[in-house]
Design a protein around this nucleic acid. Sequence first.
DNA 1: GTGCTTGCAAAGCTTTTGCAGACCA
DNA 2: TGGTCTGCAAAAGCTTTGCAAGCAC
Lengths: 139, 139
Amino acid sequence: MESASRQRRMTRQRRVILDELRRLSCHPSAEELHGIVRRAMPGISLGTVYRNLDVLWKAGKILKLEALGAQTRYDGDIRPHYHARCLQCGRIVDLRPHQVAGVGDPRVLDGMFMATGWRLDFEGLCPACAGNESEAEAC
Amino acid sequence: MESASRQRRMTRQRRVILDELRRLSCHPSAEELHGIVRRAMPGISLGTVYRNLDVLWKAGKILKLEALGAQTRYDGDIRPHYHARCLQCGRIVDLRPHQVAGVGDPRVLDGMFMATGWRLDFEGLCPACAGNESEAEAC
DNA sequence: GTGCTTGCAAAGCTTTTGCAGACCA
DNA sequence: TGGTCTGCAAAAGCTTTGCAAGCAC
């Protein structure tokens, strides 16, 4: 069992990983992020990327995105927003609250389940795929 | 590339997998379902369970549930409903539409993303964990 | 009989972990 | 200086796949 409030250090690796993730508008997998981070720090290992993504996620500094049948993806933007997944290319697009309508403040009426939060995701076609530009890369 | 409308057979294995999944109110992983199905059909292999879950999912007969950092889980109930994940034990609870309020008909205002569907999930504490019954099994 | 399915086992992929040395505070 | 962190590589865990035999239609 790991201590909840362990002393953390902001190493060069952790700094670069967080900065790059925040700078990106896409939602990279650990492996993709590793490739990107390696441009600024060639020696960094994939294991370190995984370890730091976990630390940053537990610290609430980044989001972890579930992905059906695919690798986990990460998001450096923790402001409230929705995600939309393209059914054709798998790309994940961000949607700001003002871009979405019809959602009130979902809540559970059945008191048996104590909801503390909720998540709304969309699925459909991203601009590239809707425009018949065929397959596009996911990040 | 696989043909979209391939001729499928309802084998004994496929029948049992679908029946068991529909009968269950929990959302088993492929491995858990394998253990359950094996009670009715001892010789069935895990690979067959995976293959059939995929076939059934592509045929729209079951749901595949994303799970962060965990195995994929399956749902034999394809009626419209929401899922709530317990933050403590990981169990997934079903919530019927009438048990949830505040959701209108979410839609994307930004025409750049052509949404064809959406998914709303809750997170919080399931009855068992909220009742301080400590850890409970996930299925 | 045809060709979709199965069981078995090996392979594939993503993610985690052990260890010794390096580094941050 | 002490405890955290890193790179490396091996291991773990879930899922997919090749193959020859079996079965549904």
